[in-house]
Design a protein around this nucleic acid. Structure first.
Length: 352
DNA sequence: AAAACGGGGAC
DNA sequence: GTCCCAGTTTT
């Protein structure tokens, strides 16, 4: 089935535009599958401008798969600090370890095997295969669905998982067999710079092929039902300093939100029970001279923390929880911490 | 199929 | 405020 008239001309217009206009990005200066892999994982749900400095530091710190395979998780998370979706980092390391142990250090060059690696889903598999190895495989992300939904007027709801299969099929039909890397990246580059949610069609190199532009319907596509009921959670974070001037940090659980990152002991404020009682009940900590620090909101993808923070002294008689310990200022700096915790820490240091 | 999973930039 | 970003995993 021919899904698009003038397929060859479309490919040529897209590819010549991409080769002429593509941004000079760090991961476009290499074809090392490991580096491409790193970049694609970092770019999941994350903008290019945010990723660039993280990518540069990461490949400098872990220049080989062996280096990453041997790294401590704390060191890994410190490199990822502030980038979000921290399971990406753990999954990347797990995947790299699989490659080192089971594939002799060579990233698999077929969809079946590469997709079996931790953290490598349908998009990342296709991206690494096409960009690093030049294999004609689909790499369908949000950009590609937006571009193709307009190009072909595909009105299926892109919020529904099975809709992506439609676009994967379209890409496999359209993809340039000679340069699948530039084709896939060209679609994404177009979506990121021209065919944006608010499209700039007058700059588009393929508008003559675009069914939505022809009908003036580009603003209506893609169709996406949204629905996020944001949950609001009031929390209190207590910064505790002992008589030696050390700070009490707790490591978050290994699963769930901000897994394994460090924080000042945090309490969910579900009822109107006093903070002191909750600290005693949940942590066995007795607070003295509790002073209010700063209050702010922190928005995650599905939760908003309404966060209160306090500075308190700890009585020397109290036992501390076994998932928490005291750290010097230098040690606190070195621990991987989520952004709201860093914000509190900066407030502490500013007051000192 | 839906929810969980971070953080920031653009409007 | 809303949207959504070079998505994947878990439930």
């Amino acid at each position: 089935m021919q899904i698009l008239e003038h397929q060859d001309e479309f490919r040529e217009s897209l590819l010549s535009w991409y080769r002429r206009e593509k941004r000079d990005l760090p991961w476009r200066r290499t074809s090392n599958p490991y580096y491409i892999w790193i970049s694609e994982v970092m770019l999941q749900q994350t903008r290019v401008d945010t990723v660039i400095p993280y990518y540069e530091r990461f490949v400098e710190k872990f220049p080989t798969m062996s280096a990453l395979a041997e790294a401590e998780e704390e060191e890994l998370l410190k490199q990822w600090e502030g980038l979000g979706y921290y399971s990406r980092a753990r999954n990347l390391q797990a995947g790299v370890r699989e490659v080192v142990e089971n594939y002799g250090g060579s990233v698999p060059a077929n969809r079946k095997e590469i997709s079996a690696l931790k953290g490598v889903g349908p998009y990342t598999a296709g991206a690494v295969l096409s960009i690093a190895y030049g294999i004609p495989e689909h790499a369908v992300d949000g950009n590609v669905m937006r571009v193709l939904s307009r190009l072909l007027i595909i009105e299926e709801d892109i919020a529904i998982p099975r809709t992506k299969k439609i676009f994967e099929k379209v890409v496999m039909d359209l993809i340039d067999k000679e340069d699948p890397s530039s084709f896939n990246q060209g679609l994404m580059e177009l979506g990121a710079t021209i065919c944006t949610p608010k499209p700039r069609c007058l700059l588009c190199p393929v508008r003559d092929f675009c069914a939505a532009f022809l009908e003036g319907r580009q603003e209506e596509l893609p169709v996406k039902t949204k629905k996020t009921k944001m949950k609001i959670t009031p929390v209190a974070s207590v910064v505790i300093r002992n008589e030696q001037g050390q700070w009490l940090l707790r490591q978050r659980p290994a699963k769930g939100l901000l897994a394994n990152l460090w924080e000042f002991p945090m309490i969910e404020l579900t009822d109107d029970e006093p903070l002191h009682d909750k600290m005693r009940a949940q942590y066995g900590i007795e607070l003295h001279h509790c002073k209010a620090l700063i209050n702010f909101k922190h928005v995650f993808s599905h939760i908003t923390w309404e966060l209160q923070s306090y500075l308190a002294e700890l009585s020397s008689m109290t036992t501390i929880p076994d998932d928490a310990q005291f750290f010097t200022e230098e040690e606190v700096e070195a621990l991987p911490k989520p952004v709201p915790v860093i914000k509190i820490w900066n407030e502490i240091k500013g007051n000192a």
